[in-house]
Structure formats: structure tokens, C-alpha cells
Amino acid sequence: MRFDQHTVLLLVRPADAPELPRDAADLLQDAHLAHQAGLVEQGHVLAAGPFLDPDDERLRGFAVLSVDPEMARELYANDPAVRAGRLVVRVASWLVPEGNVRFESVPVPRSMLEAAAGD
């Protein structure tokens, strides 16, 4: 059997994440979304999104990337939320039977305002 290999990335809130005032946290979230949208536009991120009600409340988001794990770490090292210490990344390679998973190109939000517009 043949397999497709993808890089998956978990965004995790560390226990020692700095507390921010609401307006600063909102600005940082917008910067995070803009960074991630840029990675989508460049073809590095195939799919990404937040978790809702995870068993571990530190789990914040998930992404599937078209690049190797080392490049994924480098790309997300530039994420404003990672640089600010609000998120850390966990990266792994993911094998699935060839052709089992397909990704479509769809628009992604660049801000919380754009994300809310879909509600």
C-alpha cells in the first residue's frame, strides 16, 4: 500500500502564556490569523482551524501543511502569537493511505472580523 505524508501542526497554549488585556489579545489574534492566511496563500498550509471544546483546553488549533516538519516549525516561529509566547507548536508527520485525504483551496479569514462575518 502507498501512503501520502503530510505535516500536521498543533497549536497549544502553554501553561505560562502571558496574560494580555482584551484589546491586546484581540490584536494579537488578528495578527495570528493574518500570518496563517498568508501561509495558506503561499500554499504552505492546506487546512487549518481552531478546536472547539477540546478535552485538553490548552489545544487551540490544528493545521495540515504541504512542507516538511522543519519548515513548518520555521514558518510558525514567525507567527506573532508564537513569538509572543501565547502559543507553542507541536509538529509531526502524518501518514494516510494514498488519496485518502484531499484539500480544496478555500478563502480563510485574515482577522476575527472576517471570521465573524461567516456567522
Results as ranks from 00 to 15, higher is better:
residue 48 A to E: 07
residue 47 A to V: 01
residue 1 M to D: 05
residue 40 V to C: 10
residue 107 P to Y: 01
residue 103 F to T: 11
residue 34 A to I: 06
residue 76 Y to E: 07
residue 87 L to R: 02
residue 53 D to R: 14
residue 33 L to R: 00
residue 107 P to E: 04
residue 58 R to T: 08
residue 111 S to N: 12
residue 7 T to D: 06
residue 117 A to V: 04
residue 92 A to S: 15
residue 5 Q to E: 15
residue 89 V to N: 11
residue 67 V to S: 07
residue 105 S to F: 00
residue 13 R to K: 15
residue 76 Y to T: 10
residue 66 S to M: 05
residue 41 E to Y: 03
residue 93 S to T: 14
residue 30 D to A: 04
residue 51 F to T: 03
residue 63 A to Q: 08
residue 29 Q to P: 02
residue 42 Q to A: 12
residue 15 A to C: 12
residue 77 A to Y: 02
residue 58 R to G: 10
residue 15 A to N: 13
residue 117 A to I: 05
residue 115 A to N: 09
residue 114 E to S: 12
residue 53 D to I: 09
residue 79 D to K: 04
residue 117 A to G: 01
residue 100 N to P: 03
residue 57 E to C: 07
residue 8 V to H: 06
residue 103 F to Q: 08
residue 75 L to E: 07
residue 55 D to P: 14
residue 97 P to Y: 10
residue 15 A to L: 14
residue 119 D to G: 09
residue 79 D to P: 05
residue 46 L to K: 01
residue 44 H to E: 13
residue 14 P to N: 00
residue 82 V to D: 03
residue 118 G to M: 13
residue 16 D to W: 01
residue 80 P to S: 11
residue 24 A to F: 08
residue 50 P to Q: 12
residue 88 V to E: 07
residue 4 D to A: 07
residue 106 V to D: 08
residue 74 E to Y: 13
residue 45 V to H: 04
residue 25 A to K: 10
